Simulated assay, not measured.
Amino acid sequence: MEAPDQGCISHDNLNFLLHRAAQKLGTAAQEASQAHGITPRGQLVLTALANAPERRTQLALGAALGLDKTTLTAELDRLERAGLVIREPDPTDRRVRFPAITETGRKVQTEVAHLHAAAEDTFTSGLTPDERDLLRTLLARLIAADTRPATGSCL
């Protein structure tokens, strides 16, 4: 077996560290989501629908999540086939759809949220509770301090 490239594992560059940490936590989230037949992006959509204070169009949902129309439509298609969401037509404009989470979708969303939290706890188990809180606080501050528009999806 070939030794790992030290140039790829010894970085202290912030971009590299954040990316690598996100990859590792993302893998854990993927495994947790797959246990219920969805993707982390599917969980993101279900969570947005479960927590929405009001009904949003598919277009508004995509904008809120940073998902383009094609990506969101494909994800909603998967979730709808699984019985986790329905898309209700707008009575005044047949081109507009309102995605809504089903009761089954709510149950799956809740269960996957617990699995994601457990995966996050495992991932951050080497940190003290204060360090976990500090990490969240610092990352939120970094994100808020950058005033450029967000690009790409939030997952």
Rank of each mutant, 00 (worst) to 15 (best):
G7K: 13
C8H: 12
C8A: 14
C8Y: 12
C8P: 00
C8T: 14
I9F: 07
I9M: 08
S10Q: 08
S10F: 08
H11N: 11
H11A: 14
H11R: 12
D12E: 02
N13E: 10
N13A: 11
L14E: 06
L14I: 15
L14Y: 04
L14F: 10
F16L: 11
F16V: 14
F16T: 15
F16S: 02
F16C: 07
F16W: 15
F16K: 12
L17D: 00
L18M: 15
L18C: 11
H19I: 13
H19G: 13
H19Y: 12
H19F: 08
R20H: 13
R20Y: 09
R20Q: 15
A21D: 14
A22H: 11
A22F: 11
A22R: 14
Q23G: 09
Q23A: 10
K24Y: 00
K24Q: 13
K24P: 00
L25H: 03
L25G: 00
L25N: 02
G26F: 02
G26S: 06
G26Y: 01
T27A: 14
T27K: 13
T27G: 09
T27Q: 15
A28N: 02
A29W: 09
A29S: 12
Q30D: 08
Q30C: 04
Q30L: 11
E31N: 10
E31S: 04
A32V: 05
S33C: 03
A35V: 02
A35G: 03
A35L: 03
A35W: 02
H36Q: 07
H36A: 06
G37W: 04
R41M: 12
R41D: 04
G42E: 00
G42L: 02
Q43W: 13
Q43Y: 05
Q43G: 03
Q43K: 11
L44T: 11
L46N: 07
T47D: 05
A48N: 03
L49P: 00
L49K: 04
A50R: 11
N51Q: 09
N51F: 05
A52P: 01
P53N: 01
P53R: 09
P53D: 03
E54Y: 05
R55A: 11
R55D: 03
R56Q: 10
Q58N: 03
L59T: 12
L59A: 12
A60T: 11
A60W: 03
A60Q: 06
A60V: 05
A63T: 12
A64L: 14
A64I: 09
L65M: 05
L65K: 08
G66T: 07
L67A: 06
L67W: 10
D68G: 03
T70H: 04
T70W: 02
T71K: 14
T73L: 12
T73H: 10
A74L: 13
A74F: 09
A74E: 13
E75R: 01
E75D: 05
